[in-house]
Each structure stands twice: as structure tokens, then as C-alpha cells.
């Protein structure tokens, strides 16, 4: 393999690494938002997921158990969010922000004694035979379990949302909780489930960061990825395929920014770091131009508290 191929391969692999946590968190948020709940606590949930996963892996010595701990912790945070916004009917924006701030603080507290410690990262599971193919084998078929899972989830969730009855009900609840309630669907329960799935996915995203991307714990290690994930969902107009596209693009820009600095590229790194957000604003402008398209794509009740009455 030539040198340039090796560099390209290495860059591609790092892009996958940078994109996967975003993909997890954004797919989870996509499901949550499809049910009409805005979860601004993704960043906090990812951090709690990251620290719990790290602790789990360190204590048990099993990285997979660590991953499960991360997912579970993210789900617990979502449960808290749900109890506040769905049962006590607090404002979703304020609650989400508080959850993030809470998550930042709590994860730092839990992680105090883990700083500087490392764990064994999740090992790769190469697909037999396929991974032997030069270049593409390594690029596509030699990854850890979570990378495979994240891509499989894009297929799975896309099918779920648009092709199954469960997905139809989820979209219905997000579009009009009032109508769903009138037809007898348990709006609050469905929103709890969607929210907890979102938390679980954010936890997985966090676990990926602390167990694979950089197999160690450092305070505030998500560095705003939760917010990027939120932006991605809008960027993707609530469609899983576009989340995949967006996550890899954002991942690519992140890596480009690192390598650009390495190569002494004359673009300020701040400019590159802001590209993802700029792209989101651009997409927001574009999708808001067509009122009808927006109406069909976005969950109409997003962020609105639903009180089941008569």
C-alpha cells in the first residue's frame, strides 16, 4: 500500500471514530424529538454516560460491561428528564439545560479519581474474510462493535420510523399529542420511552468517547458534542439517513481541522470548528423557506408540554 493510501486510510478511520459518538447521540435525539420532546440535556447525558462507562470498565475490567454501564446511566438521566418534563410538566428547554449543567458537574465529581487512569479500549471485531480485502477491508470491516451497531441503527431506525406501526405512532404523537390522546394512544408513556431511548443512545455516545475514542476520562471530555448532535438532528430534518451523512461530515470537518493544523494550513482552526454550526444554520434557513416541507418534516409539537385532559 502506498504512503498516500495509508494516510487516507488513517484519516478515514479517525473520521469514523469522530463521527460515531455523534451518530449515537443524534440518532437518540432524533427519536426523542420525533415524539415531540426536546432534550437539551444530551451533552450532560453523554458526559454521565462517558464517566459511568469508564468507571464500569475500570471496576469490572470488562469494557463491554463498561459500555452497558454508560448506556444505563444515560437512560437514568433521561428518566430524570422525563420525570421533570413529562410527569411534573416542567419547561423542556429549562429542564434540558439544567440536566446538561447537572451532568457536567456530576460527571466531574464522579470522575475525580479516574483522571489520568487508562482502560483497555474496546477491541476490534474484524469480519472474517471481508476484512482481508486491501484498503476497503480495513476501512469497512475492521471495527469495534459500537461502530457496526451505530450504522445498523441507521438502517433499523429508518425502517422503524417510516415502515412500522410503532414508528407511525411515534410520528403521530410528535405531530399532535392531542389527537393521539383522543385516539387512545398513551402519549406520556410513548414520550417516556422515546426519551429514555435517547438517553441510552447519548450514554452509548459518551461510552464511545471514554472507552474507544480516547480510552481515558477527562473532565468535560464531550467538548460540546452533545450540542453538535442536537444541531445534527435539525440538519437532518429528522431523518436517520441524513443524520448518518451529517455525522460523518461533521466528523470529517473535525479531523480536517486537526490535520489542517498539522499541515500548517493557513485557515484558523476556529473557522473550521465553527463550520458544522454554520452548516446547521444554513440548513435551517433552507428548510424554513418552504413552509409545507417544514410542516411535513418537523414534529409539530416539539418542545410543547402536553397535559392530558378530557
Amino acid at each position: 500500500m502506498s504512503d498516500s493510501m495509508t494516510i487516507l486510510l488513517a484519516a478515514s478511520l479517525t473520521i469514523i471514530g469522530a463521527a460515531t459518538p455523534l451518530l449515537f447521540a443524534a440518532l437518540g435525539e432524533l427519536i426523542t424529538e420525533r415524539s415531540g420532546v426536546l432534550n437539551l440535556g444530551v451533552e450532560g447525558m453523554m458526559l454521565i454516560g462517558a464517566v459511568s462507562a469508564f468507571a464500569g470498565a475500570l471496576i469490572t475490567g470488562n469494557t463491554y460491561i463498561g459500555v452497558l454501564c454508560g448506556a444505563f446511566a444515560g437512560m437514568l438521566m433521561a428518566l430524570l428528564h422525563g420525570y421533570l418534563t413529562l410527569t411534573l410538566m416542567t419547561n423542556q428547554v429549562a429542564t434540558g439545560l439544567s440536566i446538561t449543567i447537572f451532568g457536567v458537574g456530576l460527571s466531574a465529581l464522579i470522575g475525580l479519581e479516574f483522571v489520568g487512569v487508562t482502560v483497555e479500549p474496546l477491541s476490534n471485531l474484524p469480519v472474517p474474510l471481508l476484512s482481508e480485502i486491501p484498503f476497503f477491508g480495513t476501512l469497512l470491516f475492521d471495527h469495534n462493535l459500537l461502530v457496526y451497531l451505530s450504522v445498523a441503527l441507521v438502517f433499523g431506525l429508518s425502517f422503524f420510523i417510516f415502515k412500522t406501526r410503532g414508528g407511525l405512532i411515534l410520528r403521530a404523537v410528535g405531530d399532535s399529542p392531542e389527537s393521539s390522546h383522543a385516539l387512545g394512544y398513551p402519549v406520556i408513556k410513548i414520550r417516556y420511552m422515546a426519551l429514555m431511548f435517547g438517553g441510552l443512545m447519548a450514554g452509548l455516545g459518551g461510552a464511545y468517547l471514554s472507552l474507544i475514542y480516547t480510552p481515558m476520562w477527562s473532565e468535560n471530555m464531550t467538548a460540546g458534542r452533545g450540542w453538535v448532535a442536537l444541531a445534527l438532528v435539525v440538519f437532518a430534518t429528522w431523518k436517520p439517513w441524513r443524520v448518518l451523512l451529517g455525522a460523518y461530515m461533521f466528523g470529517g470537518v473535525t479531523i480536517l481541522q486537526l490535520h489542517g493544523q498539522g499541515f500548517g494550513l493557513d485557515i484558523p482552526s476556529q473557522f473550521l470548528s465553527m463550520l458544522p454550526y454554520l452548516a446547521t444554520i444554513l440548513v435551517l434557513v433552507l428548510i424554513s423557506r418552504d413552509r409545507l416541507k417544514l410542516r411535513e418534516n418537523s414534529p409539530a409539537s416539539l418542545g410543547r408540554t402536553f397535559r392530558p385532559t378530557a
Binding site: L168, R171, D175, S176, A182, L183, E296, N297
Partner: peptide, 24 residues
């Protein structure tokens, strides 16, 4: 048949009908 329709604006006619059925 409700006076204030219990419909989902973003969904199609077919999807709306499916949602109102127990076992579509």
C-alpha cells in the same frame, strides 16, 4: 367522528386512517 378532528397534519390520509384503527 369528532367535531374537532383528531388528525395528524404532517401525515398522509392513509397513515391517519391507520392510526385510528386497532389492528390495521
Amino acid at each position: 367522528v369528532f367535531q374537532h378532528f383528531s388528525l395528524f397534519e404532517a401525515l398522509t390520509v392513509k397513515e391517519n386512517i391507520a392510526l385510528g384503527m386497532t389492528n390495521p
